[in-house]
Write a protein that binds this DNA or RNA. Structure first.
Length: 448
DNA sequence: CCTGGAGTTGTCCTA
DNA sequence: TTAGGACAACTCCAG
C-alpha cells in the first residue's frame, strides 16, 4: 500500500531532499541519524514503514507493541506539523518502499540508525543494495547503544563473554569517550509537504488495547534508591524505562548520564543491555535457537504441554510464579525479579525447554528485545553466556519470603492464593522437582 | 606461556 | 539461630 506517494514525487521532483528512516529510535531529540540527516543541509523527509513481514507474524489484533509504536509516531507526527512537515508512513515491505522512493530523482540520500538484530541487518543490506543501484547513499549511525558490535574487546582482542570484565572495560571506555547528546544544527530543514494523518491501527488489522504506557521521565529520587529497592516487585522502584529503550522513545545517552549521576547499580543494568546486544551480534547463533553452551542442548526436556499451559496462564499453584505470569498476561510487563523466578520455574521445576518460555515472553512483553530476552532465558537455564550455575534452583517460597514478605505483590495478582483448592493444586512439588532437575542436568552434562 | 583470582540475582545442610 | 561451605568444575581474563 504505497498510495499517496505519487503526490510527493510530483511535488518534489525539482527539489533535492534526504530521507530519515525511523525504526527503533522513535524520538526527535538526541537522535544520531536524524541529527546527521538534518546536518546534511538538505530538507529531511522523515519516513516510517509499518513492516508487513513483521506485522503479519504477530498473532493478535490487540498487540500492545504496535499500539505503542503507533502512539510514539503520532506524537512526532504532530510535532512536525509545526514545521509544515510530517512523517511519511508506509505499510508494506521495506524493499518495495525504497524501490519506489529511489525512483524520485530528488532523493539524495537515506539516513538511519544501526539496527543489530539478524532480521534487521538482512533487511538493511537489501535496502542498501536497492539504493546503491541508483547511486543513492545509505548512511547509518550508532544510536541505540553507547558501544556497539566489536567496540568493546578484551585484551586478547575478543568479544567478552563474562559480564564483570566487560562492564569494567565499558566504564573505562566511557570515561574516554564522548557520549554527549546529539544536537540538531542551528537551522533545521524539514521537508515541507502536505502530510497525511497516520495510518490507523484498524487499517493494519490491529486495534487499541487502551493500555497505559509508563512515563519516559526518570526520577532521580527513584534512581537514588534503586539499588536497595529494585528487587521488591510490590514497590514502584524500578525505572520502567525498558520499553522506551526498546523503541528508542528515550535516548540511551541521557539514561547513561542519569545512571552515572544517581545510581551505579542502574548504570550496570544499562551495561547488561549492551552486553547482551554484543553477545547476539558476535554469536548470532544464540538468536537461532542454539544454546550458547552447546552441551546444554543435550538436556532431555520433558516439555509437558499441559504443564506449560498452566505456567503460561499463571496456574502453577506457586503464588509468586502465578503472580508474575498474570502480571505479564494482563499488562505486558513483569518485574525483573519475578522474570527470574518464573523463568527458573519453567526450566528447572518443569524441565521445559527455555525456548518455549523465551517465545512466550517474546509474544507478551511490551519491552521485548531479542538480545535481552534470549540472554535472560539462557542465563536462567544455565546454557548462556555468563550463565547462572545450573545447580542454582530458585525456591519460590524462599524468594517470596525475601522479596514479597507481606505478600503485597501476590495478593494483587493472585487473590485466591490462600484458598484450599489453590494451595492443594501445585503442578509439582519443589523438593521433588529440585532433585529431578539436578539429576537430569548432571547426567546430560556429564563429560561435557 | 603461565598464574591465579573471579564469576548478577541461590539453596540447603551441617556444625 | 546463624555462619560457612558444598554444589562442579571450568573458563575467562588480566597481569
Amino acid at each position: 500500500m504505497l498510495s499517496g506517494f505519487s503526490y510527493l514525487t510530483m511535488m518534489e521532483q525539482k527539489k533535492s531532499f534526504v530521507v530519515f528512516w525511523f525504526r527503533r529510535d522513535l524520538r526527535l531529540e538526541d537522535n544520531s541519524g536524524l541529527a546527521e540527516a538534518l546536518a546534511s543541509g538538505l530538507p529531511v523527509l522523515p519516513v516510517f514503514i509499518f513492516d508487513r513481514s513483521i506485522l503479519d507474524f504477530l498473532k493478535k489484533p490487540d498487540d500492545r507493541r504496535v499500539e505503542f509504536i503507533h502512539n510514539a509516531l503520532n506524537e512526532m507526527h504532530r510535532e512536525l506539523a509545526a514545521f509544515k512537515s510530517g512523517i511519511r508512513f508506509f505499510y508494506g515491505q521495506p524493499e518495495e518502499v525504497f524501490s519506489e522512493l529511489a525512483a524520485d530523482p530528488g532523493l539524495k540520500g537515506v539516513y538511519t540508525n544501526h539496527d543489530y538484530e539478524p532480521y534487521a541487518t538482512g533487511r538493511d543490506k537489501a535496502v542498501a543494495e536497492i539504493l546503491g543501484t541508483k547511486g543513492i547513499p545509505f548512511r547509518t549511525f550508532k544510536d541505540q547503544v553507547i558501544f556497539e558490535k566489536e567496540e568493546i574487546l578484551s585484551g586478547q582482542g575478543l568479544p567478552y563473554t563474562v559480564f564483570t570484565p566487560y562492564s569494567k572495560r565499558w566504564k573505562a571506555m566511557l570515561r574516554e569517550s564522548d557520549y554527549k547528546p546529539k544536537t540538531f544544527p542551528a537551522v533545521v530543514h524539514w521537508l515541507s509537504w502536505k502530510a497525511e494523518p497516520i495510518i490507523s491501527l484498524e487499517e493494519m488489522g490491529f486495534r487499541s488495547t487502551g493500555s497505559e504506557f509508563s512515563p519516559k521521565e526518570i526520577s532521580t529520587e527513584l534512581l537514588r534508591h534503586y539499588g536497595e529497592r529494585r528487587d521488591f516487585p510490590s514497590l514502584p522502584a524500578t525505572s520502567r524505562l525498558s520499553v522506551h529503550l526498546r523503541f528508542g522513545t528515550i535516548s540511551i545517552r541521557r539514561c547513561v548520564d542519569m545512571g552515572l549521576k544517581n545510581s551505579e547499580k542502574w548504570l550496570d543494568e544499562l551495561i547488561w543491555r549492551e552486553f547482551y546486544m554484543q553477545v547476539l551480534w558476535n554469536s548470532p547463533q544464540v538468536g537461532e535457537g542454539k544454546a550458547f553452551k552447546a552441551p546444554y542442548d543435550r538436556i532431555p526436556w520433558r516439555n509437558n504441554e499441559d504443564e506449560f499451559q498452566r505456567w503460561c496462564e499463571g496456574r502453577t499453584g506457586y503464588p509468586i510464579v502465578d503472580a508474575g505470569m498474570r502480571e505479564l498476561n494482563e499488562t505486558g510487563f513483569m518485574h525483573n525479579r519475578v522474570r527470574m523466578i518464573t523463568a527458573s520455574f519453567l526450566v528447572k521445576h518443569l524441565l521445559i525447554d527455555w525456548r518455549w518460555g523465551e517465545a512466550y515472553f517474546a509474544e507478551k512483553l511490551l519491552d521485548f528485545d531479542l538480545a535481552a530476552n534470549n540472554g535472560g532465558w539462557q542465563w536462567a537455564a544455565g546454557s548462556g553466556c555468563d550463565a547462572a550455575p545450573y545447580f542454582r534452583v530458585f525456591n519460590p517460597v524462599l524468594q517470596t519470603q525475601k522479596f514479597d514478605k507481606e505478600l503485597r505483590y501476590i495478593k494483587k495478582w493472585v487473590p485466591e492464593y490462600n484458598s484450599l483448592s489453590y494451595m492443594q493444586n501445585q503442578v509439582v512439588q519443589h523438593e521433588f522437582a529440585r532433585e529431578r532437575v539436578l539429576r537430569v542436568y548432571k547426567e546430560a552434562l556429564q563429560g561435557a
